[in-house]
Design a protein around this nucleic acid. Structure first.
Ligand code: MN
Ligand code: MN
Ligand code: ZN
Ligand code: ZN
Lengths: 134, 134
DNA sequence: CGTCTCATGCAAACGATTCTCACTCTGCCG
DNA sequence: CGGCAGAGTGAGAATCGTTTGCATGAGACG
């Protein structure tokens, strides 16, 4: 019921070889550069399906854009993301999980979910930044 | 250099008497209901100025809309928000602060910021939900 | 191959937010 | 008190990421 097409393969391949969070538009651009003809709408649709299947992680950056990434760990986890280049570190955060569960229950809330992401400048982008400033 | 206008007073008053997170559009609607004539763009501008001044907290809901609230504590803190009605509990989260600081440094990131919000159904909305389901 | 569908591409539609610009009103000075 | 400079306002146009409608294309399976 889910067909394998050239376009899906291309998106899937691209994401498999990328370890930074990328927006749908960036992915579309990268595919064009690779010589893959693919419609922007198709990228959006594909990336959404993959996210729904749990094959991709999604997060919103400060501008509200959705960024996608194929993470190594498939279970629930969090991220430390470079806001300049998208470089990402996957994080486990037992303390945060505990906090979320406890606090939600304490206040009588149900179906509690949480978001917890860290954004900063990775070491490389920090260095680049400093040489620019001088 | 910052002038007090009828519109700003109205928005400020409204927020002072509301303790749920609300979108700019909701606020605009509420003001219209109160009989306050005010443009939507003005609500957006006002709410932004107030947020820049640190008078309001902002967060993005799952749909990416910005929600505003005048919090009791003016320092950095987090929230437990009802995704149905906007009811909010302010949270301190020392464990989360510690986690964010530690992890960022460990990976050589600088200028690290974090988001951490809990979304659920408040006790009241949970009850309402269950009676609907039956 | 042929058929049945799901997938694709393009353009139009969306929706929250921002911007433009002519007009209004606040805060201040004389 | 007027009078003015310039911040503030409102209506609508513009943005921009994302979604959708629809005619066309192409997997899967016999
Ligand atoms: Mn978690
Ligand atoms: Mn914090
Ligand atoms: Zn970086
Ligand atoms: Zn509620």
């Amino acid at each position: 019921m889910q067909r394998m097409t050239r376009q899906r393969a291309a998106v899937s391949d691209l994401l498999a070889g990328t370890d930074d969070f990328r927006s749908a538009q960036q992915l579309h651009e990268m595919l064009k550069d690779r010589g893959e003809g693919i419609g922007l709408a198709t990228v959006y649709r594909t990336v959404q399906v993959m996210a729904d299947n749990g094959d991709l992680d999604v997060l919103r950056n400060a501008d509200g854009e959705s960024l996608y990434r194929q993470c190594a760990s498939r279970g629930h986890h969090h991220h430390l993301v470079c806001r300049r280049c998208g470089a990402t570190v996957e994080l486990d955060a037992a303390s945060v999980e505990k906090w979320a569960a406890t606090v939600g229950a304490q206040h009588g809330f149900t179906a509690v979910e949480h978001t917890a992401e860290l954004f900063g400048l990775c070491a490389e982008c920090t260095a680049r930044q400093q040489s620019e400033d001088s």
